[in-house]
Design a protein around this nucleic acid. Sequence first.
DNA 1: CCTACCGATCGGTAGG
DNA 2: CCTACCGATCGGTAGG
Lengths: 216, 216
Amino acid sequence: MARGKSPTFELQRGAILQEAARLFADKGFHNASMAELAKACGVSKPLLYHYYRDKEHILFDIADSYMDQLLAIVAGVEAQDLDAEPQLAGLVMRFMEEYEHSQSQHVVLVQDVKFLQAAQEEYVVGKQRKVVAAFADAIERVEPGLKARNLAKPVAMILFGMINWTFTWLRADGHFTYADMAPVVTAILLNGVRGLLKDGGGLPGATSQQELAASR
Amino acid sequence: MARGKSPTFELQRGAILQEAARLFADKGFHNASMAELAKACGVSKPLLYHYYRDKEHILFDIADSYMDQLLAIVAGVEAQDLDAEPQLAGLVMRFMEEYEHSQSQHVVLVQDVKFLQAAQEEYVVGKQRKVVAAFADAIERVEPGLKARNLAKPVAMILFGMINWTFTWLRADGHFTYADMAPVVTAILLNGVRGLLKDGGGLPGATSQQELAASR
DNA sequence: CCTACCGATCGGTAGG
DNA sequence: CCTACCGATCGGTAGG
């Protein structure tokens, strides 16, 4: 008869996951060793293999469980049935709040997911696509004219650029905080998107582009 | 008397550099082997060590020479003595044009520079800081009010987020091109920054932030 | 005594 | 849950 797992199994696993996220984010997946991870967790290297089959499964669990967190945030904001602009602002605010406390997970997601096997990578990327679709929908509600030009998704990716890039320059202990920057990002996005469809707003084919080409 | 180096030395070195950028960007610095690089270059592994002392010097040369290219673009736009908005738009346009043709170099810069020795990393980061300062100055010229709030540099980093993140979603063969997206980014930035200092623009302390906190 | 370049193998360490 | 190891592959260099 199977004895079942120790009641502390999930706790230990979670501790390993958190330490691994920190280590992989800091040193990179291939430059971080299982021996280092074992030492950081205060356990032997073979014991790590009691909780995870191999190094790649740890990477997958970091990325997959983090995507579940982000999807839960999306669902939570959508359940509030907000108007278009507060909903988009809420998504940005909630994501940046989450990012502040998940820096390691996010860095791993961005820099190491490509090292997963194709099937596992695709599984994580599928969840990422759901998040992008939710943001694109929210953007489309704010500026419905973007839909006709298929610009909702590109604008969503531009927004993700603004907030995801914060990992390279925003420090939790720095002069500016995530709470400071979330409204700035929201303002740039909302003001920026509102002006996007006007004449001279800079859309492909508008005059500003040709002026730049001429000044080359 | 020193005979000097072969006339093809610099050509060979440049070819290795380009191939290494492609390989490191694709597989990551630590997951790419010198044997693979040698094979991709069509030379023996020992011959690589004739052109570069070790693997890390290749990484440094990729990042450092790429930063020189970006600094040259900044200098070129500044030499045009444009008005504030055309100058900022020009910087964005030129950088995205460059990015389109330097995807590998840019990915290496973003994901692998942290693996350099501290002194070499700091050298590259110093050049990055010059680029950021140039963009922050251009942003400040467009919206001088940002200076008092020390927001020029954060807004510059938000802009770099928009354009640097394109590496994760813009494909040279995709539906949208860099040439399509540069004006969109410029429009979002210019419209966004213009509205940033107005009441209700979403700056730290503005009502929108408190509303979101209340709706939590 | 230089450079250019090879096949073979070095000392160490990776994941398991 | 440990010590002790493995097959393989790493970055870098030996002799010629």
